[in-house]
Every structure is written in structure tokens, then in C-alpha cells.
Design a protein around this nucleic acid. Structure first.
Lengths: 203, 203, 203, 203
DNA sequence: GATGAATGAGTATTCATTCAT
DNA sequence: AATGAATGAATACTCATTCAT
């Protein structure tokens, strides 16, 4: 019985998803993936040239979407004039788009954020944090043109905030399977940050 | 040329620290560690019986200290009567002791929290989060005796908060070498949480 | 060039036979076996999960057959009433069955008896000797019910006789390839024992 | 505290004896030997250039004595004229000298006969058997000058007898610690052979 | 004479990847 | 398209032997 190419591809991806959910990139086994996809060891290489590319096929699209969303977010924020407006927009967009995205690709995202050690996405968190930092810098100042004026300590704080947001979301994804729970916790988490930053006095 | 025993031991630990910083426990290679410590494959086993013990030597002491500190923290908090007092004490103790500990062993802690998959410290974050959750439950309620009354969603929230605290601190450690900076960022981070939770309305 | 699976399996077994003929279980090298089987290091593990299982595949079946034959022998002897009859039956059965078995698996038997140190067949001679001892006890006394009456020195003698029989047969197998020769020598050997014991005066 | 050279040498030999009693030549560990001799790893090599030579020092002398005794035995036998006389002399000499030798060096002999796999004494049994065969040939014929007239089957029988004698003695040594027991069993064993061969009709 | 740290090739086993069929 | 046997370099770890001290 011959399986159609696309079917096979999908079942490989499904198997890979499960394998990468429970092992690191390094620890994941191509053999186990093939076996659980119901194909032979060799055949998997007709669909994906190597482990790296299979991983890429799984998390790459999600990664690109996230980056795109973050950049969109940044663009929107650049059009707002006051820090207050920015803060609000940020929150809303996170709730509207980012969370939605997280929910849609939760498994892939979990893998991307938590299992990529050893792959070329090793540094993915760092990259995402970098992007979010540029947004936070906008929120802190009245606009990107003044970014250069940020003090070093402010840069560090922004980086910390961005990082902890990413880590926080990663953690929530890692520990919860149910979409509604993830949504509630992410909202609660972002809300906490929003309030915390709202109450914040300049330091 | 013969190096003194303690020198070699230290250079192995230094090399191991670097190796484990960039690979999982599983992914780390004893050969690479030996090589980068400037010794031969066999010699490393004169200093550490096996990979597990080398890892243990690196992160074990840190782990024990952390657990001890968290338990102390909890004991102190149990003596406070109001949630308000608890919140303050929590903040102060984090600033006084936990941060100090984190500063001393930042690299080892990073490894413990982020690279222990496959070792016997596999579940270390979960354990720490569990400990912190019991503290948060105290802060949420007026005392541990009411903990049982917490709703499921409240439990999840507590777990999320505890987890993001641990992850947040891990991240700050991972990204900053300078002690003063770490201290400032951890304080800022804890302060944000404190304010965010202070403004919080029951959901 | 791809060899058929069964061919490879056989050539591994052949190579293993040679390796184990000249080294202990412990001293035998999987690499050398692979090499002399004309395959690569990794491939051998597609056929045998590990060294132990390869050894087992070689000697396990022989071991089980031997034990079965010895037990059969004992059962038959238990039905005879006089020591004289027993002696004769013993001789006949050795000639009919044991020798046949030995002939079929001479190489594997040699390994089983002489090279199993370190494997789970470590104690195989002791076990076989133990079995034969119970038979000899029957021959010495008029029946197993009197076995308990044997003196210590008689037990030691029985053990020595059983052991030297096993060793004697092992040796003949080790040194002779030709089936007819083995048969003749084993018979001669057993006959010698039979006569020697027949002439024996109580000591 | 400095140990005198000869003391150290003896304690190494004592330790080696114990090690080789419970491991093959290959399986024995120079480290364990040093440790149990109370000296350091490196120092053992000032006394014995390598494992082989240490083994040699242990079993070499015994080996040479055995060979010498067997050759003496042969010389004596050559002076007897009848097969009957030879048989008797053989028995007596075995009881007088060989057994004495076995008793004196039982441990070394056990090792030589049972643990030499992998060393240059690997083939020691074969060599001893070869020597004994030449003696048996004398017993079979009226003198060495007729040895060439022996039939192939007679050669094989002689080899078998010689081999089983050696194996039998090896076994007795391996399984018994007490000198008196060894002596009794060896005598019993040799006696059995003597009777068996005495009763023997030409085949 | 002695020490014990260091060497380096050896061990069994695993696994991503290749390739003849 | 697919198979699955084969490859070969990698892994952790051991051990006889060497050599700076």
C-alpha cells in the first residue's frame, strides 16, 4: 500500500512534533520519528534532508509568524504618540494576536522555545527578546528617534522585561495543555506586567 | 609538565561550566570538557567518577543552598500575620538572601535551571516552583491552614507566578555577568511582581 | 554490495565463534568480531542487541540441550535397580545421545565450557558437574534415597569424577575436529572410567 | 617508611597471586595488584616491566619445574623394559614427585593451568599434554624407538589420556584448597586411570 | 626508590545519514 | 517512492603503561 506523499509528510511532522515535545533537538531520534510515523529510516530523508531541516519545517513557520507579528506590533506602536496609548495598544495586541498565535501553534512554539538547544534556533529566545526590547524602548521613550538617549540601565531593564515575558509565556505553554487555561494565564501574566509597570515610579 | 591536582580540578570545573552552559547534560561531551580543560580523556575520570558526578559537583551545592534558603523564607513568612506584611518580608528576604546567593553562583545556577535535562536534576525547576508555590499560597490566603480552599484556577495562577519568578531570575542570571546589574534587575523584577500583585483585583 | 540478512548473521556467528574460541567472554572484542565478519562496528548491533546476546545466541541452545539430556539420563537411571545396570545404561546413553549432541555443537560447547567467564554462563561447568554428581551418587549407592549417607570424601570423589568427565569431554572436543574421532575418543574415555571404577575397591 | 626491595617484590607477587586466582590474565588489573600490595601504580613497574613479566615471574618457575619433572620421568621410564614396569613406575613417580610439586605450588599451578588465557602461557596445557604424550607412547610400545610405529588412532588416544590427566589435575586444584584433599583426589584419579588402563583390552 | 598524575588506545554501544536494492 | 542494511564517527568510560617530580 502506497501512501501519498503529502500524507507521509504530515505524518512525519506529527511524529516529529511528539518526539521534540519530549526530547531536546539533540536528544530526539530520527529513528523513533520514522518508526512512529510508520515509515522506514531511510525514507524520512526523502522528505527532509536532515534532522535540522525537519526541525526547521516544524518550528520555522511559527518562528517567522511570531517575528512578523512582533514587527507589526512595533509598526502600530510607532504610530501612537503617547506612552499611555502605547501601553494600551501593546496590551490589546498581545491579547488579540500574540495569544491567538500562541494558541494556534502551541506545540510548535513550546518546542521552539524550550527544545531548540543544539539546533540553529538555539538562540531563538534571545532573538525574540531583542525584538521585544525595541518595542519596549518605544514605550519607554516617546518614540524610536530618542532610543539612543536611553540609559544603559534602562536598556538592561527593557531586556529583562522582554526576556521575562518570553520566558513567562514559554513556561505557561510548557506546563499547560488546555487552550483556555493558557489564554487565561497569559492574560493574567501580561496584566500583572501591565499593572506593575503602570504603578512603577521612575527609578 | 605536571600541574597540581587542585589546578586541574578547577580547570575541569571551569571547562565543564562552559560545556554545560551551551549543551544539555545529555548533549555535553566529556571529551570536549577534557580537551578544553587541557587534559586527556582518561584523566578527567581521576577527578570525577563520571559525568553525573561532575555535574553534581557543579550544581549540587547550589541546589542545596537554594532549597535551604527557600525553606527559611517560608518559615519566616509563616510568622507574619497579614498578607501585607508577608509581601514586604518576601521582598526584603529576596533582596537580602536569595539575590546574594544567586550572585555567588550565577553560572552554576543557570546550568542547574536551564541545562539539567537528563541528569538527576531534571525536575529541579519543578521542585523549586513547587516550593515557591507553597509560599505564594500563604501570601494569597491569610495562612497555610486555608490553602486547601484555593480554587483550581488560583493554584494554576500561583504555579504560573512561581514559575515565571524562577524563569525570570534564571534569565537575568543567564544574560548578565555583572553582580550589581543582576542585583538591580532582580530587585526591579521582584518589585514589578510585587506592584502588579498589589494592584491586582480578584478575578 | 548488500549481503542478505541471514548471510550476515551467519558470518557474525562464525566470527564470534572464532573470537570466543581464543578469548574469554570478557576478553572478546565486538570490534574484532565485526571486522572479521566483514561488517562495520555499528552493524553488528542490528543482529544482536549486545555482546551478551551474541554469546547467548551461540551457546544458549547448546546449554539447554545438554541440561535436558543429562536430566533425561538421570531419569532413565533412576528406573534401574542395580549399580551394575546403571553403569551399563550410563555408558550406552553417553554413547547414544550425549556424544551425538557433543558432536553436533562441538565448537559452541568448547566455548560454553571454556570461555564463558564473565558471562551469565560463568558457572556452567559447576552446574553441569553438579548434575552429573547426582547421577554418580545414584551409581555409587543403590538409589537416590541413600544419597544422604555418602561420606564427605565420597562426595568429593563424585565431584572430582564428574568434573574430570566434563573436562575430559571438553578437551576431546577442543582438540579434534573430526566427528568419528571425537566419538571414538569419548567412548574410550568413558570406557576407561567405567573399567577404572569397576575395578575399584572401596577406599 | 621505606620498604626493602625484596619485601616489596614479595608483596607484589603475593598480591598478584590473589588477583590472578580470581581473574584471567586479561581480566586481572595492575592497579588492583599495586593497591593490594600496598604500593603505587607506577612503582610496580620498577619490579616487573609489565603485566606479562609479572605473570611470568609467578608461573614461569613452576612451569619449568613441571617440564623438568616430566622429562625426568620420561628418562626413568626409558630405562624400564616392560610396559608393565613402566606403568608402575609412572604411577609411583606421579605420586612421589608430580603430586609433591602440585602441592608445593598449588596456587601458581592453578593459575598456570586455568587463568593463563591471553598470556604467553595460553598454550601451556597443550605443551604439557605434548610432553606427557611422549611418555605414554613409551608405555604403549616397548620403547621410544618404536614410537613411529604407533597408529594414528593410538596417538590420538595417548593425547586424549594425557590431556584428560592434565585437565583432571587442573580441576582438582581449582576446586580444592586443602592439600590433603588434593593429594587424595589426585591419587584416586591417577589410580582410576591406572586400573582403567590395566583392564583395558586392545581395541 | 617511590609517587601518582597523566596518557592514549582500548572497550561496548548509539545514531544520523547513506545507498544498493 | 520506499526499504532497511550498512556506515562510521560519536558517546562514556577503563586500564596498562609512562614520566615529571
Amino acid at each position: 500500500m502506497q501512501t501519498l506523499k503529502e500524507d507521509v509528510r504530515q505524518s512525519i511532522l506529527r511524529a516529529a512534533l511528539n518526539e521534540f515535545k519530549s526530547h531536546d533537538y539533540t536528544g530526539a531520534s530520527m529513528r523513533r520519528i520514522s518508526a512512529s510515523a510508520g515509515i522506514t529510516t531511510g525514507n524520512i530523508y526523502r522528505y527532509f534532508t536532515n534532522k535540522e531541516e525537519l526541525f526547521e519545517a516544524l518550528v520555522g513557520p511559527v518562528y517567522e509568524k511570531i517575528v512578523a507579528y512582533i514587527l507589526d506590533l512595533k509598526k502600530e506602536l510607532d504610530l501612537s504618540y503617547t506612552a499611555e496609548e502605547k501601553g494600551l495598544k501593546y496590551l490589546n495586541m498581545v491579547e488579540d494576536t500574540i495569544v491567538a498565535l500562541f494558541l494556534e501553534y502551541s506545540a510548535e512554539l513550546t518546542i521552539l522555545l524550550n527544545r531548540s538547544a543544539g539546533s540553529k534556533y538555539d538562540q531563538v529566545k534571545e532573538h525574540m527578546v531583542g525584538l521585544i526590547v525595541t518595542i519596549l524602548e518605544d514605550v519607554f521613550t516617546s518614540g524610536p528617534q530618542n532610543a539612543a538617549e536611553l540609559k544603559d540601565s534602562e536598556r538592561q531593564s527593557a531586556r529583562m522585561l522582554a526576556g521575562t515575558v518570553v520566558e513567562g509565556v514559554s513556561l505557561i505553554l510548557r506546563e499547560n495543555e488546555d487552550g483556555e487555561t493558557v489564554k487565561r494565564l497569559v492574560n493574567e501574566f501580561v496584566y500583572l506586567y501591565h499593572l506593575g509597570m503602570g504603578c512603577r515610579r521612575p527609578n
